[in-house]
């Protein structure tokens, strides 16, 4: 008898969520990532690239600063560059609003969002600084000003879900619910948000994760468990599509910032950072992530090609970044 793959019966599916006024769809899959032999994947995973609301200067790893040279002080031009590089989504970080930094107010945030939405026609994530009170203040103001533009607002936590959730509901936006590497806390926050009346197709989950080599396995397994609960146990409080912001952790790590000359056995510095980002991207994709928040254009190119190959099959195309072999 011919070999048959032992298949799993999936009873649940991931919610289909329309992003932006363009209604770009994400989610909708009814099997584990890449399992094309036993499930349907109506929409491929999406990739977002980061834009900051100010010039990061030394805070940004050199290979990233190089890739975005010339646009770093201008969120609109920066966002355009992201789309040129293949981003499906632009993620605007309101870094200036950090009370531990320049602590700018809602007016400045609104101005930055305006520049980005004017510059690009892809969905836009507007991301705070993970400060519950400040994010509630800033994102509430952004939500009102851009009513019915279906921005994706985050991070929303169990400490500020009421303020941001209510504004998102009132003004027609989608939210990113962030929970600290824990399936039950993720579920609880989803229940709280839907309890406010937020429809399930306006909810995305950020399960959070450690960076590659920095405890990624904890986040990885939480993603797998969440996906399993959603698809196999049909837990409808865990069927939100997931986003992961691992790109930031990867590029902040020590190893992504070591110069080639001092560490020849770690290879070309830029390529090392890119492949760390790609490696974590592939790992979390496989664990169930639907939106990858990334940073380097070369990583985007590779991961997009990978997504095409794993879902559609076929042979790889050309024009991919090469690894420059470091001899020593």
């Amino acid at each position: 008898m011919a070999f048959q793959i032992p298949t799993v019966k999936f009873s649940g599916k991931i919610n289909e969520v329309p992003l932006g006024p363009q209604k770009v769809l994400v989610g909708g899959q009814n099997a584990y990532s890449f399992h094309t032999f036993e499930g349907k994947f109506p929409h491929k995973p999406l990739i977002s690239l980061d834009v900051w609301d100010h010039n990061p200067g030394e805070e940004m790893a050199a290979p990233l600063a190089e890739a975005f040279k010339g646009v770093l002080g201008d969120p609109g031009a920066w966002a355009k560059k992201c789309v040129e590089y293949g981003a499906d989504i632009v993620c605007l970080h309101l870094k200036s609003s950090d009370p531990n930094g320049t602590n700018t107010g809602p007016a400045e945030a609104i101005a930055a969002v305006q520049k980005v939405v004017d510059a690009v026609s892809v969905p836009v994530i507007v991301f705070g600084v993970d400060n519950k009170d400040k994010d509630a203040e800033t994102l509430a103001a952004v939500a009102e000003k851009f009513a019915n533009k279906n921005l994706i607002l985050g991070p929303v936590t169990d400490k500020n879900y009421k303020q941001i959730g209510a504004q998102a509901l009132a003004y027609g936006h989608t939210v990113i619910a962030r929970s600290p590497i824990d399936v039950n806390l993720a579920k609880q926050l989803n229940i709280l948000l839907t309890g406010l009346g937020l429809p399930k197709d306006r909810l995305i989950g950020d399960p959070t994760t450690g960076g590659l080599g920095y405890g990624m396995e904890y986040g990885y397994s939480v993603m797998e468990r969440t996906t399993m609960a959603a698809l196999v146990q049909q837990d409808d409080a865990l069927q939100q599509p997931l986003i992961s912001f691992f790109g930031e952790d990867v590029w902040k790590s020590k190893e992504a910032n070591l110069p080639t000359a001092e560490h020849p056995n770690m290879g070309d510095a830029q390529c090392r950072g890119v492949l760390m980002e790609v490696t974590e991207a592939i790992a979390v994709l496989g664990a169930g992530i639907s939106i990858l928040a990334m940073r380097h254009p070369a990583s985007v190119k590779l991961v997009k090609e990978y997504i095409k190959l794993i879902y559609d099959g076929g042979a790889p195309g050309g024009g991919l970044p090469e690894v420059p072999i470091t001899k020593f």
Partner: peptide
């Protein structure tokens, strides 16, 4: 190469 093998070693460790 260091740039390609190092990330895979980290992933494998994790």
């Amino acid at each position: 190469d260091g740039a390609s093998i190092f990330p895979l070693l980290l992933e494998r460790l994790n």
